[in-house]
Design a protein around this nucleic acid. Sequence first.
DNA 1: CTGAAAGCGCTTACAG
DNA 2: CTGAAAGCGCTTACAG
Lengths: 348, 348
Amino acid sequence: MTSITDVARLAGVSVATASRVVSEADYAVSAPTRARVLEAAEALDYVPNALARGLLKRHLPVVGVIVHDITDPYFAEVVRGVEDGAHGLGYLVVTCSSERDPQREASYVRLLRSMRAAAVIFAGSGLDDPNLNAELSRHAAAMRAGGAAIVHLSPHAHGEPEIGVDNAAGIAAMVGALAGLGHRRLAFLAGPASLYVARDRLAGYRRGLAEHGLEEDERLVVEGGFDAEAGAAGVDALLGRRAPFTAIAAANDLLALGALRRLAERGIRVPDDVSVAGFDDIAAAATTAPSLSTVRLPLRELGRRGFEHADRALAGERSAPVILPTEVVLRGSTAAPAPNPLPIGGPA
Amino acid sequence: MTSITDVARLAGVSVATASRVVSEADYAVSAPTRARVLEAAEALDYVPNALARGLLKRHLPVVGVIVHDITDPYFAEVVRGVEDGAHGLGYLVVTCSSERDPQREASYVRLLRSMRAAAVIFAGSGLDDPNLNAELSRHAAAMRAGGAAIVHLSPHAHGEPEIGVDNAAGIAAMVGALAGLGHRRLAFLAGPASLYVARDRLAGYRRGLAEHGLEEDERLVVEGGFDAEAGAAGVDALLGRRAPFTAIAAANDLLALGALRRLAERGIRVPDDVSVAGFDDIAAAATTAPSLSTVRLPLRELGRRGFEHADRALAGERSAPVILPTEVVLRGSTAAPAPNPLPIGGPA
DNA sequence: CTGAAAGCGCTTACAG
DNA sequence: CTGAAAGCGCTTACAG
């Protein structure tokens, strides 16, 4: 690869002068000299070595985004938001998918630290894993000390996100909407207990129940994964418990989508026999049959503002945490309750 | 951040010795010295500076994956395959989403080149854009000359992928399956004409038609985007042309999913009134109602083998191109043709 | 406006 | 087995 030394030699100037021309900063360089350097760089197809530059500047123009699952549309949308903000400013957005494996998450963050990434954005919720969280805070502290920005978009071990949504309020609002439809027995697909965000959403479910005078029944809460498979399994679990319910709220859309599928497979009609509601409003929610009632989260905006927060931090500015609004979206999967609560014939 | 100088000082050795201990290569260092260095590194939370190391080694342990659309499950699956292979070997997988914008794609590749990425894997098809392709081959040549690996998983401006599938044969097989069901008038949602892969798939459609003695009717071919929105629009276009058809094959699953939705909205039953088939077999294909008949591509394997190809190239080995097998998967969205070809009442 | 020189944090022949 | 030194490709005071 050609280096700035080659460019300088071809242009007949010192490397210092060549550097002044090709760097983005505008140094005073005489017009003819500038032209000669530019011409030489062009002729040699010169692309500056970002590693050499990064070594000096102490960071690389890279923004790492840690997601839980790259196939989950939730994260795809958030990452796209980050890219919206970052791309124009010359940052490379690096998406790292932890697969919810603490080892993997830690090793990605360490890698990002080792290459002096300018920022790391944790798009997913923290995991309740003491070893992971200890390592993560070491890395975060070191990176912050080195001038990098660390941003969370979801609750984590050390508190609330810099940019986030009120998960509990969102779920409570959905519970309220379901109660408004006349539902009294609401099941909840809660997701993984080890995820802070899932805990917040479960708390929101409980709060919603309480706010609307609905009684809690622990048999109606199912924990598990956070994907469609887990949603299908959740329906099976619920039906096996024989505690009646007329609606299922899920802690995310993927769970609800899986529930929809399993319900169809078992010949249970939605919303006639049971209502189903999700959370997040991923694109697929609008296109299922029936379309999924859910709570809209401004995912892309979350990503974009997360980047902007990082960018401001990089510039030395501090900004207050922000909570983005959520909105209940009622579609075809919810309706007034069926006369016979599911599981049909189960004890009340 | 602490540097190797700090570690050396604390351990009471030279930086050379400290480097020998913390680097992965196994140099001969006395056990007590090794222990002292390791202890110092631990105490100081030392993480090597990958930029300094990369400057010397002339590349960073980074694998860039260029995708067209990070929200498309096709790419999410391929990237996951790349990560399967890359993660254990200490590479950071960087996903760059071009949004099918030539400028953006070029700028990502340039960025990857500037940070001396060890490999770049083009997951999506090439775009027929002369300027873009000229810039891309400059970067590829320079990176290869610098020892980096460049891998394509789909057809591109300069030929066939190193690891790929036979798109034309796959589509032709689906056309054959549809013909076997009794369909004679097959519409085709072709995707963007500027994408090499879409051209291959369109050629496969034509070949399939010819192989089964079915006549071509240009009114039955609709070009457009590659997402669900385009699939819905494609149905509208098809219906507006008033040329009869009993089945719709799509160049990818997202198009087929969009078609399914629009058909439902217009009260046209699948597969009773019209059959629909996709291509790729993304996860969502199995969970729609009706479930989508499609052609399975080994997406995750494609990613994994793409990485392995890059890894071998990095080790200086050359490997022959490989074509992965595809398989027709018939589900609920296809059946024998309806007696009245769509559009109902249209001229034959 | 331009150049010589130091230095970012490592690795690796070269001596010993 | 260990250390002093050169060098990877840049940027940036410091002189002039």
